[in-house]
């Protein structure tokens, strides 16, 4: 079984330690939700695992199918099967979604191997149908002038096309109204129902998203590490009691 292991991971930005001893194993097909108040290191964790150059790993390891990926560049990690859905995706003016994805798919082929353009478009359109995305969407420049909802749908479409083994979804619900949230959640659920579903690490601040994407496991992150784990009922408990409850319990522990 394919798995992503994060072992006692420590991450710093500059001199400042942000993630402090984070440990979690995700198996393919599982959905793990990470919840926690702002500033607790959730986004830092996702970016560090994806290989952002600004984040320094000061300890621990990240293993994909048993092999450490920490010495690999972000693009190598991506090609190995990791995907980061961004909270704030960059826009790439002048580059259409179709061409961007094509370049990303091409990058996964062996050297000298040419992309089959017809097959690529067939697959792209199939994924768009699955996610109920209009055909015109992919001729637009990546994220350029997109609404919050469009940006997130663009992320989901990329995830669907690149078929990662593991996806880190960073605050996918932020900035979305309830309709947009439902559309994005439907997309994620469609990918979960596919033949080879990815393992998903779902980072969120609110319980709301978990009404639509029901997680297998819920973890509470506080001060750079997981302080409590449970099933989906933990999310509801958090919703009812608020994060202060965690803070108190953790401070007491």
């Amino acid at each position: 079984m394919s798995q992503l292991e994060i072992k006692d991971l420590h991450v710093a930005i500059g001199d400042k330690p942000i993630v402090r001893g984070f440990t979690l194993t995700i198996r393919r097909g599982e959905v793990h939700a990470i919840m926690g108040p702002n500033g607790t290191g959730k986004s830092t964790l996702a970016k560090a695992v994806a290989g952002h150059p600004d984040y320094t790993i000061t300890g621990g390891d990240v293993l994909l199918d048993g092999k450490s990926i920490l010495t690999h560049e972000a693009d190598e990690r991506a090609r190995a099967g990791l995907f980061l859905a961004f909270q704030y995706p960059s826009d790439i003016p002048g580059v259409s979604i179709a061409n961007f994805l094509r370049a990303a798919v091409q990058a996964r082929l062996a050297e000298g191997e040419e992309l089959d353009a017809t097959a690529y478009y067939q697959r792209l359109y199939a994924k768009m149908d699955l996610l109920k995305i209009d055909r015109k969407f992919t001729s637009r420049s990546v994220n350029d002038g997109f609404s919050g909802g469009e940006k997130k749908r663009c992320e989901i479409l990329q995830m669907a096309m690149l078929e990662p083994k593991f996806a880190l979804m960073d605050e996918t619900d932020s900035g979305l109204d309830i309709d947009a949230l439902r559309i994005v959640a439907d997309g994620v659920n469609a990918l979960r129902a596919a033949a080879h579903p990815p393992g998903i690490l779902l980072i969120t601040h609110y319980q709301r998203l978990l009404d639509y994407i029901v997680p297998d496991h819920v973890h509470v992150m506080w001060d750079g590490r997981i302080v409590k784990s449970g099933d989906k009922s933990l999310a509801l408990e958090l919703e009812a009691k608020g994060y202060d409850w965690v803070k108190k319990e953790f401070a007491a522990a």
Binding site: D75, F86, I92, A107, L162
Partner: peptide, 15 residues
Amino acid sequence: NEEMIFYMQSRGLTE
């Protein structure tokens, strides 16, 4: 900018 490059790298493109 670096963020744009990282975004593209995280999709598997080299720098």
